[in-house]
Computed example of a mutant assay.
Amino acid sequence: MALQAAALAVIAASTGFTGWAIGTILLGAGTAMFYPTLLAVIGDIAHPLWRGRTVGIYRVWRDLGYAVGAIIADLLGLHAAVWTAAAASAATALLVAFRMYETHPRRPGQTRERDISLP
Score class of each variant (00 low, 15 high):
residue 77 G to R: 04
residue 38 L to T: 03
residue 62 R to C: 14
residue 97 A to G: 03
residue 53 R to Y: 06
residue 3 L to C: 07
residue 33 M to N: 06
residue 88 A to H: 09
residue 74 D to M: 13
residue 17 F to L: 14
residue 73 A to V: 02
residue 84 T to K: 06
residue 89 S to P: 03
residue 31 T to C: 10
residue 6 A to R: 06
residue 92 T to G: 10
residue 114 R to S: 12
residue 115 D to T: 05
residue 118 L to N: 11
residue 25 I to N: 03
residue 98 F to A: 13
residue 49 L to R: 14
residue 118 L to P: 06
residue 42 I to D: 00
residue 76 L to Y: 13
residue 102 E to T: 03
residue 83 W to P: 00
residue 68 V to S: 03
residue 62 R to D: 14
residue 32 A to G: 11
residue 116 I to F: 15
residue 31 T to V: 08
residue 27 L to H: 05
residue 52 G to W: 10
residue 15 T to A: 12
residue 60 V to M: 07
residue 19 G to S: 02
residue 116 I to C: 07
residue 26 L to H: 06
residue 75 L to A: 12
residue 11 I to P: 00
residue 78 L to T: 09
residue 45 I to V: 14
residue 114 R to W: 11
residue 22 I to D: 06
residue 109 G to S: 02
residue 33 M to G: 15
residue 102 E to D: 07
residue 35 Y to R: 10
residue 73 A to C: 00
residue 67 A to Q: 04
residue 74 D to S: 12
residue 89 S to G: 02
residue 82 V to E: 00
residue 55 V to M: 15
residue 76 L to P: 00
residue 10 V to W: 07
residue 77 G to L: 01
residue 93 A to K: 06
residue 19 G to L: 05
residue 19 G to H: 05
residue 87 A to N: 03
residue 91 A to R: 05
residue 3 L to H: 04
residue 34 F to V: 01
residue 43 G to N: 06
residue 45 I to L: 08
residue 83 W to D: 00
residue 13 A to Q: 09
residue 47 H to C: 09
residue 112 R to V: 08
residue 115 D to W: 08
residue 42 I to Q: 02
residue 9 A to G: 07
residue 96 V to I: 11
residue 49 L to V: 11
residue 77 G to W: 05
residue 107 R to I: 15
residue 34 F to K: 05
residue 65 G to D: 01
residue 98 F to T: 07
residue 9 A to E: 05
residue 65 G to A: 02
residue 83 W to Y: 10
residue 8 L to D: 01
residue 103 T to H: 05
residue 66 Y to T: 11
residue 56 G to H: 04
residue 91 A to F: 10
residue 18 T to S: 11
residue 6 A to T: 09
residue 93 A to S: 05
